[in-house]
Design a protein around this nucleic acid. Sequence first.
DNA 1: CGACCGATTGACGACCATCAAAGGTAGTGG
DNA 2: CCACTACCTTTGATGGTCGTCAATCGGTCG
Lengths: 264, 264
Amino acid sequence: MSLQASGTAPGRASATPVRADMGSELLLRKLLLRSPLDADEQAAVRSLPVEMAGFDAKQDLVAERSHVAKACLLIDGIAGRQKLLSDGSRQIVSVYVPGDALELCAQLLPVADCGISALSRCSVAFVPQAALRAVAAAYPKVEAAFVRETLVEAAILREWLLNVGRRDAYSRLAHLFCEIVVRLEAVGLYADDCFELPLTQHEIADATGLTPVHVNRTMQRLRADGLIETRRSTIHVRNWNELALIADFDPTYLYLPKAASELH
Amino acid sequence: MSLQASGTAPGRASATPVRADMGSELLLRKLLLRSPLDADEQAAVRSLPVEMAGFDAKQDLVAERSHVAKACLLIDGIAGRQKLLSDGSRQIVSVYVPGDALELCAQLLPVADCGISALSRCSVAFVPQAALRAVAAAYPKVEAAFVRETLVEAAILREWLLNVGRRDAYSRLAHLFCEIVVRLEAVGLYADDCFELPLTQHEIADATGLTPVHVNRTMQRLRADGLIETRRSTIHVRNWNELALIADFDPTYLYLPKAASELH
DNA sequence: CGACCGATTGACGACCATCAAAGGTAGTGG
DNA sequence: CCACTACCTTTGATGGTCGTCAATCGGTCG
């Protein structure tokens, strides 16, 4: 699972080494999806210093209650933001796919109210907050782009709340898959109706507010109904229209350019 | 239900007329809760033009899919942001209490992905986005304060997702009440263990992902257990410690100054 | 090969939804 | 002032979705 358009394959999960400048290039690509930037602004983003790091599944990228000193750009793998209840149950409140930029505005809050952890093996580019702030101060359009990403994340959060609060397990899983398809498609990671989702059913359960057992049974139903096929961690969408119908899926909230929203 | 500290009582819901400059004063008070601003910056916020409006329950402050031209400052009453499913079911994804400032950064997204509507009779101060942008551009600290409010709203959203995804009805309602108590307390609307919550049980159900019938039964249990008392739309907290314990409530995510978080 | 983790299956029960109806309360108009 | 209405709260009965517990199966890795 790597950003195909990036030219170079990323870290640990694949064989090729990571070029140090790739992170900022990816960040730029991400911002351009929703925010037009002129040449100067693009150059400024490209010049941001990045620091690559690899993580195994279940490692924390950002610990809860820690001070957030860097923004994270997910290069490869799946990460998630999670909150825990004192009885140990977990809710994954966001999942992140390659290309997602996190904590772009986080220096404005003193501590993280929830942690970010790798859900699969991940490679991540960190950008020091000081460098981000410097570029944001010099280029208002870039700052606007940072804030815009944060707003989109909030919009996704609202849709998730609707998903967990008001859809039954069947539509809820369908919706999760629809969203991930569109988000992966926007970064070139959805092809031939297939995508990689290296999450356990337990993690899918934590993201949807269900139990692993019920996720298992519900996914069996999605398969039996000819909507998806699964093999290892790859998911094959067999009937997108029906899946989107069941999910009551409307990708407006993702604020992506039309192309990505109009699948099939 | 009005901001006691404001000096003047607000619009329709009460008898006294609204002073035109009150909105910006309230906005400033709100920002200062989480963002220190110096005299110049405070003056700039105070000078923002506001336009007062009154709404009956169920009226839209901001329609879904509409272009957001103004920020909203809720002066009085309860408002909520909501998303609808095509089968008509509703999820309230945020509730807003007097003093809350909404859509401070909304000009960065082209259209609203969900609507904001009055859940009770409300009075609202609108601020044109152009004026906000002008002040934000001139005073970076003020812009940071705007973004910070947006980040806090996202943090609340994450806690709500945890609430709906992982807590049972009993703790879920307890948590909702705990959060509202702390937020109201921060603006001086919680006194003598009592607060006004002019929401129907149907609206509480839509906010918690439950059905009205189940909200009713669960609230009866909260009353029977001596945690709250209700009379009309006022809620009397009888046992805060136990309520917070049941809710597994930790107000960190609200990012309020200590005083407000340390009730009792 | 054995250990471990994740997917799967079965049995059972609880929480919560649904449907339907009755009681309270507020607002309206005669 | 009272009747009427509309909406909200409350209650009961019933059933389904989903959770819980526990065991088995299958694949991966050391």
